[in-house]
Computed example of a mutant assay.
Amino acid sequence: MIKVLKPGFYTSVQDTGRTGYRHMGVPVSGAMDIFSAVLANRLLNNEDDTAIVEITMTGPVLEFSEPTHIVITGAEMQPSLNKTEIPYNRVVRIKAGDVLSFGKLQKGIRSYLGIKGGIKTDKVLHSRSLYVPVTKTARIQEGSTLPYEPFKGDIENLIEIKIDNDFLFDSLIKVCPGPEYDTLSENDRKRLENAAFTVSAQNNRMAYQLEERLSSNDFSIITSATIPGTVQLTPSGKMIVLMRDCQTTGGYPRILQLTEKSTSVLAQKRSGERVDLQVLQQHITS
């Protein structure tokens, strides 16, 4: 078991999300930065969809009751084991009684704790991802426990390797034209391709808003499907980027669609940070 001594700002259990239930209005959920979550699992020789711990802004304090191996990926939060700093993107051995804590946030906003064999909380609709009301809580609570299976063996390739995740902390966001992209004026299309945007204070697991606006409009569409990474345009010209806990349908024009990698990049951005959109050629159809 992992005992949660302190939960941190927003710490939750996630995996690659729950699929097959969007027709019932159930969001995908899952790790916001899917690249870092999958990386942690692959370094541990876990399956990609193994449940990990997503840590946002400030880290938790966690005590391990059994031996295992862990990996920390994503945002840099000065992780320490028994008050001794440990590296990112490296497998670290854990003994019974070890305490993991985190320091000051240095880069990015979300870290991921992978554990050999994964977190073994209950599955709901074939996923361990926390999301209210599908699950009882949205984040872990002080004093709660997270089960895992002890691991005393060795992990193959327990060596230092260079992980290229610098792109997560760049400003470049690659997007494809969405189904309603052609409704934009020529001026707005040029603006999308040649201007920087700023992450608004209105950002969470459901959506990120951008500060700068496009032209006001009276576009409307029949309520249509949306997925994580869909960029909606409101009548006031504000752009809303849907994230992992987003609704499954919406009535605002879907002008852009982030690539999966770019959704991970955006998930590592904080309020006030800049993003530069790069519109690719291929269109996303409805």
Rank of each mutant, 00 (worst) to 15 (best):
G108L: 00
E160N: 14
P235G: 03
V279I: 12
M57Q: 15
H69E: 09
V92L: 02
N217F: 04
A96M: 04
G30N: 05
D218Q: 13
S215A: 11
I221H: 01
I227T: 09
Q106T: 11
P177K: 02
T58S: 11
Q202C: 10
D15S: 00
Q209Y: 11
G143D: 03
R22D: 14
Y10L: 14
V13F: 00
I119K: 05
I2D: 01
S236Q: 15
L184C: 03
Q14E: 12
K269I: 07
P67T: 01
N204F: 06
E149M: 10
L62C: 12
T11V: 02
K238A: 15
G25R: 02
E212M: 01
G108F: 10
K6D: 10
K104C: 09
G30F: 05
D48P: 08
I221T: 05
N157W: 12
G153K: 06
V275W: 03
G237T: 06
I2G: 01
N46Q: 01
M32A: 12
I155K: 07
L105M: 09
S185D: 03
I72M: 07
Y21P: 03
D182F: 11
K269A: 01
G74P: 04
I222G: 03
Y21Q: 10
N165W: 09
A40V: 06
V241G: 00
T68S: 11
S220R: 14
T263E: 14
S127Q: 09
S29E: 07
M239G: 05
H23F: 13
F219N: 09
M239R: 04
F197S: 04
L184N: 00
F151K: 02
E160Q: 13
H126F: 15
V265Y: 03
F102L: 03
R213K: 14
S111E: 01
Q141D: 11
A138D: 12
G118Q: 06
E211N: 13
V265E: 00
S220T: 12
N46T: 05
S111K: 09
G25F: 07
T58R: 14
S286N: 13
L210H: 11
Y112E: 00
T249V: 13
V275N: 05
Y252L: 06
L62D: 07
P27M: 04
A225E: 14
K261D: 14
P7T: 05
D122H: 11
P177Y: 00
R244F: 09
D276E: 15
E180Q: 12
I159P: 04
D48Y: 04
I2W: 08
P60D: 08
H283I: 11
N217E: 02
Y21V: 04
V71C: 06
H126S: 15
N187L: 15
M243R: 07
R93G: 10
P60T: 05
I221G: 09
V241A: 03
T145E: 12
G108S: 04
I109P: 07
R42K: 13
V53Q: 01
I255V: 11
R90G: 01
P228I: 08
G103A: 02
A201M: 11
G59W: 09
R205W: 07
L214G: 01
C176P: 10
T259V: 10
V175M: 03
Q247Y: 02
N157C: 09
V231P: 06
R191F: 08
S286C: 12
N41I: 10
R205V: 05
Q257F: 08
I227Y: 08
S171R: 14
R90F: 10
V279Y: 02
N194F: 07
